[in-house]
């Protein structure tokens, strides 16, 4: 009998995510995958899954699922009471439900199920890429998600002591990007000396930020160039966009700076209204 869970309610947005599709960017296919990679890796470790197993990425809680067979589950990232399994794996007996309320702080919760979610991979990955449309698509009510067979031992960890996402301002490390010198001194000072608020237009593609405008001194047209996660791309409005997992492979606006890769995970937990402080 196939092991599975049934989604009763997905919440505002729930997608299947794994480590993504590296290696295809030259054909216009971005990596995608979990937005907060550290929380994703922790979730798989805690239930004894392979490092690249597929999990659920739940945006702002609201997920309700039912175990169709006994299954070990854990949540990481944003903690969503009353779900009892945060950073602490739990056996969910067949027929029992797991309910995620709104998160206490943070935005994205990773729900790993022992064995991993075994939907058919697309180009080597089970991730849903909301920009390109590749992957299984957003999870819907009634979806039955098949689970793989466990292949690794449980790690024997009761609780992983990791800090929760912040509900306050977040300071992150940045370094100059390839077009740092296309911007005025005032723009560089603004980036490093003022706060940028996350707006409601943000999604898995990127955080759209609002703050002091970042003006250019070099106004030539930029031929499109490759970009990585963590890029702070500045469109003509002067309001930067911080690229997350589903960012386009190439972009035509200059990248002023990059957020350190490890810190991008923490940025992926920011809600609209929270502020980012960039530290050089």
């Amino acid at each position: 009998m196939t092991r599975s869970v049934t989604v009763l309610a997905p919440g505002p947005l729930c997608t299947v995510q794994d480590a993504g599709r590296p290696g295809l960017a030259a054909t216009g296919v971005g990596r995608s995958g979990a937005c907060d990679r550290a929380s994703y890796r922790l979730a798989n470790r805690l239930v004894g899954n392979p490092a690249d197993a597929a999990v659920l990425e739940v945006t702002f809680g609201g997920l309700r699922l039912r175990a169709d067979t006994d299954v070990v589950v854990v949540t990481t990232g944003a903690r969503c009471p009353p779900a009892p399994a945060h950073n602490s794996p739990l056996e969910l007996p067949a027929g029992r439900e797991l309910t995620l309320g709104p998160p206490v702080a943070g935005l994205r919760t990773y729900v790993a199920l022992r064995g991993g979610i075994d939907v058919p991979p697309v180009l080597g990955s089970r991730s849903t890429d909301l920009l390109s449309g590749l992957g299984p698509g957003a999870v819907r009510p009634g979806d039955v998600l098949p689970l793989g067979e466990p292949c690794l031992p449980m790690p024997g960890v009761d609780v992983a002591p990791v800090p929760e996402p912040t509900g306050d301002d977040l300071a992150v490390r940045v370094s100059p990007g390839p077009r740092w010198d296309w911007f005025t001194g005032a723009a560089r000072d603004a980036l490093l000396g003022s706060a940028y608020a996350v707006t409601g237009d943000s999604n898995r593609v990127g955080l759209r930020l609002a703050g002091r405008p970042l003006d250019r001194c070099e106004n030539g047209e930029l031929p499109s160039e490759g970009m990585a996660r963590g890029a702070l791309q500045v469109p003509p409005s002067g309001q930067p966009v911080l690229f997350l997992a589903d960012h386009p492979v190439t972009g035509g606006y200059p990248v002023l700076a990059y957020v350190d890769d490890d810190d991008v995970d923490r940025c992926a937990q920011l809600r609209p209204g929270q502020r980012l402080l960039f530290r050089g």
Binding site: P22, G23, A25, S224, G226, A228, T250
Partner: peptide
Amino acid sequence: VTDIVPAARTVLLLTDP
């Protein structure tokens, strides 16, 4: 290096740190 991304005047190399 995990990805090599050519564009009009650039080549981006993405790495596994």
